[in-house]
Design a protein around this nucleic acid. Structure first.
Length: 198
DNA sequence: CACCAGATCCTCT
DNA sequence: GAGGATCTGGTGG
């Protein structure tokens, strides 16, 4: 990378997922593979609450599948959904298993490799969905539980030095069958890489 | 072991 | 906007 990543520390994640979901917009998701970097600017997120949220994977308690949700803030929860993987950022502390689903990014660096991973040539269809992001970045269940605040790992999140404020749109979450109406989805209004507008 | 429910995506109308 | 492909983990017998 030609710029120095500014790794986000754990205190950023130790907050309500509704706040973290919005603050993650514009941050950079960075994947390191064999010395190469894939970089995406986060454009779409969804918050899943630590309690009382029937759509959250913590709703029925801790299982082998979701145990990463019970780690401290700043870890990754990677789970499989049909043929795809999805990635959440764990928020709050281990007794409050909230999380933020990363649903889309703007491709920034390593775009050719993303295209290979996705078998897709069109930039606009590369990373505009949670399964697509994981495929493009080669995020698999092997990364479940990884510490996103550790730059030595294969996956981390950084901020940018001087970012202009961007408009955020709030909507209900997508693809769930319960708790459909809660306004917990956030995206950069002007981004071309978002799963769905409005 | 069988069944079923998904935080999806792609390909058609 | 609908329907199917296709995979994994959780639950109950």
């Amino acid at each position: 990378m030609e710029w120095e990543p500014l790794i986000i520390s754990q205190s950023f994640y130790d907050r309500d997922p509704i706040i973290v979901a919005q603050d993650l917009l514009g941050k950079f998701l960075i994947r390191k593979i064999n010395g190469n970097f894939l970089v995406g600017k986060i454009t779409e997120t969804e918050a899943y609450l630590s309690s009382g949220d029937s759509a959250a994977h913590n709703f029925k308690g801790k299982t082998k599948r979701n145990e990463s949700l019970y780690k401290n803030g700043g870890h990754a929860y990677v789970h499989s959904m049909r043929q795809y993987c999805l990635i959440d950022v764990v928020t709050e502390s281990s007794d409050k298993p909230g999380s933020v689903l990363i649903r889309a990014v703007d491709p920034v660096e390593g775009i050719d490799m993303m295209k290979k991973h996705r078998n897709e040539e069109n930039d606009d269809n590369l990373t505009n969905g949670p399964g697509k992001v994981c495929a493009a970045f080669n995020i698999t269940r092997q990364l479940d539980g990884i510490d996103l605040t550790d730059f030595r790992g294969g996956l981390f999140i950084s901020s940018s030095e001087d970012r202009l404020p961007e408009k955020i749109t709030i909507s209900s979450r997508i693809g769930i069958s319960t708790a459909k109406d809660m306004p917990l989805r956030f995206y950069l209004s002007e981004s071309a890489h978002v799963s769905k507008k409005r």
